[in-house]
Design a protein around this nucleic acid. Structure first.
Lengths: 204, 204
DNA sequence: GCAAGATACATAGAAGTCGAGGTATGTCGT
DNA sequence: ACGACATACCTCGACTTCTATGTATCTTGC
């Protein structure tokens, strides 16, 4: 996940390590802060792998910086990862959000749509957090409010995302609407009771 | 997170490793499957630490099993972790969901409420995924549909969870409603447009 | 002019996780 | 009778990540 974030942010702009660290912290850091001891060795590995360049710039502001920029191989690798993400990047919410943050770099709408369809497929698989033998347990099966909350939140998230996925997929298809479908739709609109699909049979 | 899940599941019932593995897979496995090579060494470590017992049961069904059960120390450790979770368990969605799955084991409603308040505090902190200098960027600042989706989904999740947190906190307070507040409330009710708070100023 | 804090990078050691492989038993279909 | 598959557990090496610590520069407050 970290590597994808590094590639994605550096595709947008040259950054030095410290700045990159803050970008990553904003994207995923409130959830799971990344440590110096993780980022800097990673950057060295990525440099050794030819994905990025590190150019020393003598201290203009504070200590000397390493200005980071993607190589051609790095840019290619970013596109490859966006085009063919590992299953974990589809299923793990944190990783999936990282995908969404940079999916626009993948120029081809058909390829973008293919990735969204993988997520759609995952979300429409039957799933549940708890089972009684083979029977999936639903919110109403619990009398403790915490597991009920777990289901409530997960269900709401899934519904919102499914709706967004279907809308966006429709607009990505050739001749399927404008290129920027949700430009003027308020986020709240997605939550209106009327617009929520009733066909969701998913446990979570 | 894994350790918490192990402690939590074993508090409910004795299980053997394979069964425990399937329980954990249902709770977090669709997101991030756990490997044999992770679970079995973990169980040995936890046994060495005195948190659980492993008793060999000669093969009744298939290969011989190790029936697992919590020790008193293990039960105490579970409660300690539920009472005083590390910050990561408050901020990381996957870990937080694990907390919710087992929070009922913490008998004292006041202690349960304290944990929920920590999550509430976290969710009401201003936060954003992307920044332009000091200015947090909102959904409308992007013209790519994927980052808009990111914001849309995150916002919807946060709103749903905030509402649930506040309801549940109210019912956990002394004299604050029944002990099982959401027993009969349908999950869908939480999503009705009328009931969604309009005061949310949070970026994500 | 001096301490505190932010900027900026680095390394070492401890620990956890994964993937790939292995062993063995029981069940089911053909 | 036999192979495929599920059950059930185990180990090793490679890799990643975290924590703690260290170094050095620049800015800001007092």
């Amino acid at each position: 996940m970290l590597e994808l974030a590094v590639l994605g942010f550096l595709h947008d702009a040259q950054l030095h390590g410290y700045e990159l660290r803050r970008h990553i912290a904003a994207l995923t850091g409130h959830v799971r802060p990344i440590a110096d001891g993780t980022l800097y060795p990673l950057l060295k590995r990525m440099e050794a792998a030819g994905l990025l360049r590190r150019e020393l710039q003598p201290g203009q502001i504070a200590a000397p910086r390493h200005m980071l920029s993607l190589t051609t191989a790095g840019r290619r690798e970013l596109l490859r990862r966006l085009r063919e993400p590992d299953e974990l990047f589809i299923t793990d919410e944190n990783r999936w959000f990282t995908m969404l943050a940079f999916l626009r770099h993948l120029d081809d709408p058909a390829q973008q749509a293919a990735v969204l369809r993988r997520r759609l497929h995952f979300l429409t698989q039957p799933a549940s957090f708890f089972w009684d033998g083979d029977r999936p347990l639903r919110a109403a099966d619990f009398d403790d409010p915490f597991r009920q909350g777990l289901f409530t939140i997960a269900t709401a998230t899934t519904r919102t995302e499914l709706r967004w996925l279907r809308e966006t997929l429709a607009s990505l298809e050739p001749g399927g609407g404008t290129r920027q479908p949700r430009q003027d739709a308020a986020a709240g609109e997605l939550l209106s009771a009327r617009s929520i699909e009733e066909d969701l049979q998913r446990g979570r």
